[in-house]
Amino acid sequence: MKSIEVAKRIEKIAEEKGISGAELARRMGTDRSTITRYYKGIRKISMEEIPKFAEVLEVDVIELLFGSTAKNINLVSQEKVAIPILGKIACGDPILAKENIENYIYKPADSLPSGEIFALQAKGDSMDPTIPDGAIVLLRAQPDVENGEIAAVLVNGDEEATLKRVKKQGDTVFLMPDNNKYAPYIIDENNPAKIIGKAISYEMLL
């Protein structure tokens, strides 16, 4: 998928819907010159902007990425879902607020479980060898997990999301690294934490 190809599809769809460059800029919250640079291929459209263009133009993300013919392919696995990759969590904001989203990955709809799905990039080797450094981890949003499952957990004042294995012993909850070089994190009143999702799979970016 090339940015200029996506830009040409956006330009064609906007023209078909009677949306001028200036009006598209207004709806996107940018200026007319930026839209012109997209159309001419001078400026690349980032992956995180594509869902917004799709929303503004009232089309599927898959159509912008692969063209209208992609919608006619009679394969469920061709239907893609945009999954947000979260960065630092803005304190007080909903988890999937725009401010928290760094990028998107696209997965076949039939490969995903039900529920709200998001992703985090593993940083460091604390979950190695289970989850390698740099892996993109898919998670289902939920406030708790079973004992021994890997979860995304908010720590440090609900601003940092970490991936750890949750161990429950009585009233005590431990966030356990799979790499024994690291110490567990004990959740208590001095070290509060909040589970935001259960890890369901991971992949390495090429």
Results as ranks from 00 to 15, higher is better:
141 A>L: 07
62 I>C: 05
113 P>L: 06
138 L>S: 03
26 R>A: 10
109 A>G: 01
140 R>F: 01
129 P>K: 00
197 G>R: 06
84 P>Y: 13
26 R>G: 09
148 G>T: 07
192 P>T: 01
61 V>Y: 05
129 P>I: 04
188 D>L: 07
204 M>V: 14
35 I>A: 11
36 T>E: 13
30 T>W: 08
90 A>S: 12
201 S>I: 02
5 E>F: 06
13 I>A: 05
53 F>G: 08
201 S>D: 02
150 I>C: 02
52 K>D: 13
4 I>T: 12
7 A>M: 15
8 K>W: 10
108 P>Q: 09
132 P>N: 12
176 M>Q: 15
202 Y>D: 03
195 I>H: 02
160 E>K: 14
150 I>S: 05
20 S>K: 05
174 F>H: 11
177 P>N: 05
5 E>D: 14
56 V>H: 14
30 T>E: 12
29 G>H: 06
14 A>V: 11
29 G>W: 02
64 L>N: 12
37 R>H: 14
14 A>P: 06
42 I>T: 12
114 S>Y: 13
130 T>K: 00
43 R>N: 14
49 E>D: 06
205 L>C: 04
142 Q>S: 03
101 I>Q: 13
41 G>N: 13
35 I>M: 07
193 A>I: 03
62 I>L: 14
130 T>R: 01
5 E>A: 05
162 T>H: 06
144 D>V: 01
186 I>L: 13
29 G>S: 08
170 G>M: 09
108 P>V: 10
28 M>P: 00
90 A>F: 07
31 D>R: 06
41 G>F: 15
98 K>F: 12
43 R>K: 15
201 S>M: 04
140 R>Q: 08
70 A>M: 12
22 A>K: 07
54 A>G: 11
198 K>F: 03
190 N>D: 08
126 S>M: 05
63 E>Y: 07
178 D>F: 00
158 D>F: 12
76 V>D: 15
135 A>L: 03
55 E>R: 15
29 G>E: 08
34 T>Q: 13
153 V>T: 08
94 P>S: 11
201 S>Y: 03
11 E>D: 12
13 I>D: 04
68 S>M: 09
75 L>G: 00
5 E>C: 00
99 E>D: 14
46 S>V: 13
98 K>P: 01
12 K>W: 02
91 C>Q: 10
160 E>W: 04
157 G>C: 09
29 G>L: 07
125 D>C: 01
116 E>F: 01
75 L>A: 12
146 E>A: 12
19 I>W: 09
55 E>G: 11
183 A>P: 00
129 P>T: 04
201 S>Q: 01
89 I>S: 08
49 E>M: 15
112 L>F: 00
113 P>K: 03
82 A>M: 10
11 E>R: 15
174 F>T: 04
85 I>Y: 11
4 I>F: 03
110 D>G: 06
100 N>E: 04
161 A>M: 10
127 M>S: 03
152 A>L: 01
158 D>I: 03
152 A>C: 04
95 I>V: 08
100 N>C: 11
69 T>F: 05
204 M>L: 15
97 A>G: 11
2 K>R: 14
136 I>W: 02
7 A>D: 09
203 E>T: 04
114 S>D: 15
159 E>N: 05
16 E>K: 11
59 V>D: 11
172 T>C: 12
17 K>D: 12
1 M>V: 15
165 R>C: 09
164 K>L: 11
